[in-house]
Design a protein around this nucleic acid. Structure first.
Length: 288
DNA sequence: AGCCAGGTTTGGC
DNA sequence: GCCAAACATGGC
């Protein structure tokens, strides 16, 4: 990996990173937008642009003291090739890793991830993306970049003041009270950012105390924002794929049992594997 | 019309 | 503790 400056843009090369796949198609983030080949987001209150370049990506604006944060966000410090070698002989895992070069599991802001996956419950990807976008459009702060108006997601303090009815009218349905009530808990001191320093079990136990957060949403927050890659979210797709591709687990009754078995079998990288299997199944790249 | 979507909550045993 | 039903919405 090689990190240099190209004007005010941070240029990272010598890496495998598929922006469209990682930021949009894999459905681990719902806040990135693509415009004329450039990917935009608001992270930590600041608008940022990411462009694919030969052998890597470039981002701007990036402050020098945030270089490490960028590498962490894009998960560029993890050795995905080593994972590929480890599972090269496994019929499904090896193939999934082969089919999706450049897919990485992001480390996003915790609050954005929490909102996105509360919205994701019993929902489909296009509508999740639309609802997350609506949340920013109606209740988030605007930021300018490249002549575009981008919007942050509302802070917990801002969302705590939004009437449930306003969200209902935007189409959030029964998730409206989950979002507002969770915002109230976070605004009144729930230690969201401290979860990063806790064990998987302890962080999980605390996350499921939030309204609208069950085992699956908690695992998504842990995997996609807390850097806890032993999390293994089991949704309808992973439920199906585990039973089809791991017949020895097909006798397990519940998703909780599937989750526990997968975590035991795959260990600290379980969630990374989950993401590759999930995308292959959901997009029909591998027959379920 | 009925089923499905990156589930969670609630109430009954 | 396990299980079923209810929950909003939009696409097919």
């Amino acid at each position: 990996m090689n990190v240099t400056w190209r004007g005010d843009a941070l240029c990272i090369t010598g890496i495998s990173f598929d922006a469209q796949l990682t930021l949009i198609d894999s459905a681990q983030s719902f806040t990135w937008r693509e415009h004329e080949g450039v990917y935009y987001n608001v992270i930590g209150g600041e608008a940022v642009a990411l462009s694919p370049v030969a052998g890597g990506v470039q981002l701007y604006p990036v402050a020098e003291e945030h270089i490490e944060d960028v590498l962490c966000y894009l998960d560029l410090l993890r050795d995905y090739d080593a994972l590929g070698r480890k599972y090269a002989a496994h019929p499904q895992i090896g193939r999934a890793l082969d089919l999706l070069p450049g897919l990485r599991v992001l480390n996003q802001p915790v609050w954005d991830t929490l909102l996105s996956f509360i919205i994701s419950a019993n929902n489909n990807v296009p509508r999740i993306r639309r609802l997350v976008w609506l949340l920013g459009e109606h209740h988030g702060a605007p930021r300018m970049l490249d002549g575009l108006v981008l919007r942050a997601l509302p802070t917990a303090e801002a969302l705590a003041q939004v009437p449930q009815q306003a969200l209902r009218e935007l189409g959030f349905g029964y998730r409206a009270p989950f979002l507002v009530d969770t915002a109230r808990m976070v605004a009144s001191g729930f230690p969201l950012d401290a979860l990063r320093d806790l064990s998987y079990d302890e962080a999980h136990r605390r996350l499921v105390q939030l309204p609208g957060v069950g085992d699956k949403v908690a695992d998504c927050v842990q995997l996609f924002s807390l850097g806890q890659a032993e999390a293994f979210p089991v949704d309808v797709w992973v439920d199906r794929l585990m039973r089809a591709w791991f017949p020895e687990m097909n006798h397990l009754k519940t998703r909780a049992a599937l989750q526990a078995a997968a975590r035991k079998q795959f260990g600290p990288d379980a969630g990374i594997i989950q993401q590759f299997l999930f995308h292959c199944a959901r997009c029909g790249l591998m027959e379920v």
